[in-house]
């Protein structure tokens, strides 16, 4: 049953991806991107990664769709037709895809118990988290306590992204406003 659900979700995912490649209207691409994120979130929940699924639904399907739409508001809604031949990019992406698929052959099977991920650090966290921190959700205790340093870094990354957008867009708007005022006077 779980295999069937995963299969259907992955098929939908592939269909949406092909749709994103084929459609020229950027508005449709953004909406399909939101659908992709929702499917991805459902897949992550099917894999019992509820925290990640929730983040994917909120960030991928929610906020980034809105941000892309508001960016679209500033540009054309139609993708410009390609100026060069598509053969080289298609060959390159097929090659990269083939290398990635080849790489998955060496990965352990999903959910296998005796992999490195499930046997050393993961076990240790599961065994020590609740006695040491008394936080029932191990994901939160790993995120905020054991790996608090990394989460501080992530927060700093978001801070940097915000400052970056602000520096790129806000300064220019002020200059345009001044130009308009000069034109009026």
């Amino acid at each position: 049953m779980e295999f069937l659900i995963n299969l259907i979700l992955l098929l939908f995912l592939a269909a949406v991806t092909i749709g994103i490649i084929g459609v020229r209207n950027l508005f449709a691409v953004v909406v399909l991107g939101g659908a992709y994120s929702f499917l991805m979130a459902t897949l992550l929940i099917a894999m019992d990664a509820v925290d990640v699924g929730m983040t994917e639904a909120a960030v991928g399907a929610g906020v980034s769709t809105v941000l892309l739409l508001s960016a679209l508001h500033l540009t054309n809604t139609e993708e410009a037709p390609a100026k060069h031949s598509n053969v080289l990019p298609i060959a390159l992406s097929l090659l990269t895809g083939a290398v990635l698929v080849y790489g998955t052959w060496d990965l352990p099977r999903y959910g296998e118990a005796d992999t490195a991920v499930n046997s050393y650090v993961g076990d240790e966290y599961l065994a020590r988290s609740i006695p040491e921190t008394t936080i029932p959700n191990v994901v939160t205790s790993v995120l905020a306590t054991y790996r608090g340093y990394d989460t501080l870094g992530e927060t700093a990354v978001i801070f940097t992204a915000g400052i970056g957008v602000l520096m790129l867009l806000k300064g220019r708007r002020r200059k345009e406003d001044e130009d308009e005022e000069e034109e009026r006077s």
Partner: peptide, 30 residues
């Protein structure tokens, strides 16, 4: 531990929500 996680998460909440909203403001304001 509980208090530390609470405070740290409050910091994350503040930065994430205000950054997202600020990016939206800057995009939509242009």
């Amino acid at each position: 531990q509980h208090l530390g996680v609470l405070l740290v998460e409050a910091g994350v909440l503040l930065t994430v929500s205000s950054t997202m909203l600020l990016i939206f403001y800057t995009f939509a304001g242009r």
